[in-house]
Nucleic acid binder design. Structure first.
Lengths: 175, 175
DNA sequence: GGATTATTTTAGTGATCACTACAAAAATAA
DNA sequence: TTATTTTTGTAGTGATCACTAAAATAATCC
């Protein structure tokens, strides 16, 4: 999972993935069916891990403003490079991949995340949920990309604070 | 150039690039030296084209607020997918590439753009130029990524408007 | 027009890609 | 303990990758 996250789907070959798991290609195929199957499992593990910032922010409770703000702060803390891994696997793991299946898997994961966030925002802002979730999704995408380009926690935290303020203002205007 | 932009550096091979230019590989190598050399030229042409949103926004004059706002609006208009091409070549063209040289070329282009924007912002906000340009860069990164994921002009324009408002507020606070 | 130079193409190169047939090893059942 | 099933590894497969040596073609010079 870390290899896919660090370098993207296409840049990591099956031989290297097998070596990281301590198995040879046939065993990898026996276990996962294909490279994309392994990627799918990596995405599922990512979703259930501490990297799921929306899930974590939601678990601590609070209103929409609190949860979204917490999520931005979590992104600022978790996205900067650590051991060569930066950003978000779902948002950028299959960026520019030549493999339709891999791109489809991340597209589906992104769509599911967007729906979950939109539905949560709609609990307080039904009329503006689409507009607000778009803002959140695009802002997080920018943070993931920036982290992968080398941005540090300080600059991501400054952006998160601005995004948080903006979200609160935009949400309050729809009341 | 459009192939690199549409699919990313690694997803387009030399044979396909040659076919698009109407030449065979040796001629391509004679002309550009390497695949990365061709990519370098594509980046240079992109920079001098209408896709240079900072250059275009700057050419119309005005203060920092006006230029940055105009740039966000240009991004919202130019980034959505058209003929399979979306987002920004400099920001996302070599994302996840296994080729160090290609990634280095886009990193250098991004750094140069950032410096240019920072210096421009510093003409009115010297104390906050770094903070403000970080916001701009991350926001544009999010817009490019969103466009490549299929976002349309309406949602990018809505984000651009919010980013514009945010930039103006944050800039005004540092006065 | 012939000789020379420049450009382009044909036909590859060695490496890597995702994946697999078959053999070997390990685990399980009788 | 032997037979059967499952798991893993060896040794590939055909395709694609970026790139190139040598041949062919086109352009230029005298």
């Amino acid at each position: 999972m870390r290899l896919f996250h660090a370098r993207g789907y296409d840049a990591v070959g099956v031989a290297e993935l097998g070596a990281a798991l301590g198995i040879k290609p046939p065993s990898l195929y026996a276990a996962f069916g294909s490279k994309a199957g392994l990627f799918k499992q990596a995405l599922e593990r990512y979703f259930t891990s501490d990297a799921n910032i929306f899930g974590r922010a939601l678990a601590e409770g609070g209103g929409v403003d609190a949860v979204i703000g917490r999520m931005f702060r979590l992104a600022a803390r978790l996205y900067p490079a650590r051991d060569g891994v930066a950003g978000c696997l779902v948002l950028d793991g299959a960026r520019n991949s030549a493999d339709d299946e891999a791109r489809g898997l991340t597209a589906a994961a992104r769509a599911a995340s967007r729906v979950a966030m939109r539905d949560f925002i709609a609990t307080e802002h039904p009329a503006r949920a689409d507009d607000l979730v778009d803002f959140v999704v695009i802002a997080l995408g920018g943070m993931s990309a920036a982290a992968r380009d080398g941005a540090g926690e300080a600059s991501l935290a400054a952006f998160a604070a601005k995004a948080d303020r903006t979200f609160r203002r935009e949400a309050a205007e729809g009341r």
